[in-house]
Design a protein around this nucleic acid. Sequence first.
DNA 1: AATTTTCACAACCGCAGCTTG
DNA 2: GCAAGCTGCGGTTGTGAAAAT
Length: 305
Amino acid sequence: MGRQPCCDKVGLKKGPWTAEEDKKLINFILNNGQCCWRAVPKLAGLLRCGKSCRLRWTNYLRPDLKRGLLSEYEEKMVIDLHAQLGNRWSKIASHLPGRTDNEIKNHWNTHIKKKLRKMGIDPVTHKPLSTITNDQITNIEQPENLSIQQENLQEIMQPSSVNDVSIDQSAITEIKLDDDDDNNNNNKNMGTSCINNNNNFDSTIVQEVNNNGFCTDEVPLIEPHEILVPSKSTPSTSSSSSSSSSSNIIEDLKFLPSFDDWPMENNMGFGWENDFSSTLDFLLNDDNDMNNVTYDDSWKFEQLL
DNA sequence: AATTTTCACAACCGCAGCTTG
DNA sequence: GCAAGCTGCGGTTGTGAAAAT
């Protein structure tokens, strides 16, 4: 007997989320917490499947998310972690507070892969491309000089300045490879080193920072001041391609508390503090004419305050 | 200015793994 | 032990914006 679909897909909406749907989902989760995703759409009055709701919340609406492009240092972390963990995006994401697996996966596929290839490094094996056959590299942009690959590699693994470090160092703990089937996958040759010995650099970035003793899967929540909130008045490189459906209500808020900061309400610990609470009230209050607010990048929360 | 192409990212799909009865 | 139900994960696709022509 085959598995039943996660939900009855008949009559369910697909595609980009609207502001109204986001509002309903946020409202519901704030009042009820995260539980039983299957039941969420029905209870929240959404014509979506539970899976879609979960994804929208975890990848976009969660208040502890960072927005915008990955910093140079985060990118280096991703490369390092990918060398150890492979395409285990959720594991990688667990080392980068405020980043989602989807975000990292997208960034890897659109930016990092190209960057590595340009440097003559195979993004899959993290080895120099020169080790593969000529046929394999016909479609890959050739590095000008393979001899500089190692230097380049060193360079990208070394933060150029402290300012590049936008993630919580304390969140970075020693990578502990799982005991399960990891031993059977192609990561086993990577060991605890970022790149094999031939590539001549280690993963001290990841391994040395273990001050707070966090479990690798217990990523500490980022503090409000750590969250980058791009302002329209000072255009940043982030979210340059935000579409009308991809703007985030949360990202437009000035103050973003971590879950740690939320007062315990309900059994899930949801709740908002002070400024954010009133701010959110505004968003969620039907009396406010949200329908007249354009839900795209031109809309900034400051305008509503 | 209009059209086409490329790029980036949000969202979807299907499967795996875990839990429960 | 088995089946069903649910969540999480990773690969892939669809879509809108930006860049190129």
